[in-house]
């Protein structure tokens, strides 16, 4: 299964990547499992699975850890928003 992953703001700067297409192994089918999968890369990526302030969106809608992730989805990770 392949998904597009986006990173914004301070998270994008920390990871040094704004967007990437990632092929996911079987079983990585929710936002929470995707966070654990990305954290396995180590280094600056480790915090993705444990940072409780980190927000996620699936197909441009806010999503919690249980939200399913499917083929072709756009998944975004970002810090709490500060607009307005």
């Amino acid at each position: 299964m392949s998904v597009r992953i986006l990173f914004f703001a301070s998270l994008r700067e920390k990871l040094g990547v704004g967007a990437e297409d990632v092929s996911l192994p079987d079983g990585v089918d929710t936002v929470g499992k995707l966070r654990e999968f990305l954290a396995q890369r180590g280094g600056d990526w480790s915090s993705i699975s444990v940072d409780t302030r980190l927000r996620a969106a699936v197909n441009q809608r806010m999503a919690d850890a249980t939200m399913p992730v499917g083929e072709g989805d756009e998944v975004a990770f970002f810090p709490p928003v500060t607009g307005g």
Binding site: F8, A9, S10, F78, P79, P80, V81, T82, G83, G84
Partner: peptide, 14 residues
């Protein structure tokens, strides 16, 4: 609208 914009709209200030 402003209260929800502050917490739900994906903008970030640097």
């Amino acid at each position: 609208v402003m209260d929800f914009l502050k917490t739900n709209a994906p903008f970030w200030k640097k």
